[in-house]
Structure formats: C-alpha cells, structure tokens
C-alpha cells in the first residue's frame, strides 16, 4: 500500500499527543467491526453448526460430539464482553415465555429490584432509569410464547439490550457488595470487593468470570449450567452449576472468553 509510510509516521510515539484518545479510537474500531458482523443475540442454530468450526481439530470435534448428545441447538451472542449477562437475560426470559407461573414469581418476589440499591451507593436517579427499561423488557414476557419475536427484537435493539445488561451488572454488583465478606475470598490481589465491582462488574464490556455468574445467579435465584468447552483432556464437556445444586433454568456454552446459549435435547 502506498500509504504505509504515512501510517508509520502516524504510529510514531508523540508525547504531546493524547495517548488515551488514540487507544480509545483503536478500541472503537475493533468494536465496530465486531458489531457490524455479529448480532447481539443470534438465531437458534442446530448444534451441528458448531462442528464446521472445528473440522480439523480432534479435541474440539469430540467435545462437540459430546455436546450434541445433550443439546439440540445453540444461539450465538456478540462477543463484546457483555455476552454472559446478555445470554443469561435472553435465555432466562425466553424460558419464562412458556412458564408464566415462574414468570409471575420472578416479577413478584422483588427479585427484579436491587435490594438496598441506593444504600449501596448507586445513584437513585440513574438506577431508576435502568430498572424501568429492564421491567419494560421483562413485561413483554407476560404476553406468553407468542412474544418470542418481540423479545428477540428488543434484545437486538442496543437501546433496550444494553440497559438490560447494565441492570444485571448492577444486580451482580449489589450482591457482591452485600456479601462482601464472603466474596472477598475470591478476588485476587489486594483489591476490595467495592473496587472489583467498580472496575470489573459495573462497567459495560468487561468480561465475566465465575464470580459474576455466582453473584448474579444467587441474587436472582436462577440456576445456570455452564458447559466448559476447552482443550482439557476429557472427551466430555464439563458442566458447572451456579449456584451449586440449584434447579437449572439457563444453559450456556463457554468457550475461552465467550458465552453462547444452549438448548437441551429433552425439554
């Protein structure tokens, strides 16, 4: 390319330049590429669609094989760091479409509010905004199975979808802070639970770890089964349930750095 020298010139470190801005610009460019090619929540695909990704990889092929004995389909999510929260929200609300009794319980039991949210230092003004939008999406589920398309559309509208993610992040953060003494044991380094929440839980686009999953599933009392598909020796895809021993309502597939939604064969 003829403009390569110009690019080199641009890349030269210039102490007068605002380096934060340059880094941000690059991040934005990468995010834009991802957002233009992958939907926030994809269509349901047959599980076999995973096979094609691993045609020349024996370990993963075996694992897809194992998965296909247990699950019939998969729904991909956008890898933007919010995938766990978004996948969880969609999968759970989708499961409630056919289970209005459970839905009523979820809505009624104050499950949907952040207990003591304001006391935890969340500004009431902005908290309300996220809560209202979250409830708007939740209420769609009350229309029953026919509302599936509407739910899918809302989750692909970033205005709603991202607000749902923010709200769940706040619920997770609230849970971590409420049980700070317990969760402190799982935080590496010398960060406090509060710092961890400010740096890794509340900001959008921050990836989720076990601790996020435990916090959210315990706060909402919704069981999550995560299938871990990695390079481990076993030919089986290992499952972890959060919280341990709970009734599983949401099935997720984890591949290093990313969560998608799984649908079991028997249901």
């Amino acid at each position: 390319m003829s403009d390569s020298t110009e690019t080199d010139e641009n890349n030269k470190y210039n102490p007068g330049e605002n380096q934060d801005d340059l880094i941000l610009q690059q991040h934005r460019k990468i995010e834009k590429e991802i957002s233009e090619s992958i939907a926030l929540i994809g269509n349901k695909e047959a599980l076999s669609s995973l096979e094609s990704e691993y045609s020349d990889d024996d370990i993963y092929r075996q694992k897809v094989q194992d998965l296909s004995n247990k699950y019939k389909s998969v729904r991909r999510t956008r890898p933007d760091g919010n995938c766990f929260f978004r996948a969880f929200a969609f999968a759970y609300l989708e499961s409630l479409l056919d289970n209005q009794q459970e839905f009523a319980k979820f809505k009624d039991t104050k499950n949907c509010s952040i207990r003591g949210g304001v006391n935890l230092g969340f500004p009431q003004f902005t908290l309300e905004d996220f809560h209202d939008t979250f409830m708007e999406v939740v209420n769609v589920v009350g229309n029953g199975p026919s509302a599936c398309d509407e739910l899918y559309k809302l989750f692909n509208n970033s205005g709603y979808s991202d607000y749902v993610v923010v709200y769940l992040r706040l619920i997770a953060s609230g849970q971590l802070q409420k049980e700070a003494e317990f969760y402190q044991n799982f935080i590496e380094g010398c960060r406090s639970v509060l710092d961890f929440c400010h740096q890794e839980v509340e900001p959008m686009f921050k990836e989720s770890d076990h601790i996020h999953i435990i916090a959210l599933s315990s706060a909402l009392n919704v069981g999550v089964r995560v299938r871990y598909m990695d390079r481990g020796d076993s030919s089986e895809v290992i499952a972890h349930d959060f919280p341990e021993g709970s009734k599983v309502a949401v099935h997720l597939l984890y591949r290093p750095g990313h969560y998608d939604i799984l649908y079991p064969s028997t249901s």
Partner: peptide, 17 residues
C-alpha cells in the same frame, strides 16, 4: 484539554450522569 480520569475511561459506569 483532554482529561486523564479513571471514571472517564476504564472505570466508567453507566450509573454516572
């Protein structure tokens, strides 16, 4: 005039107004 402040970068939370 750009500002180096954590809450405007990696510690941003959507709850800030």
């Amino acid at each position: 005039g750009g500002i180096c402040l954590d809450i405007l970068q990696n510690r941003w939370s959507p709850t800030y107004d």
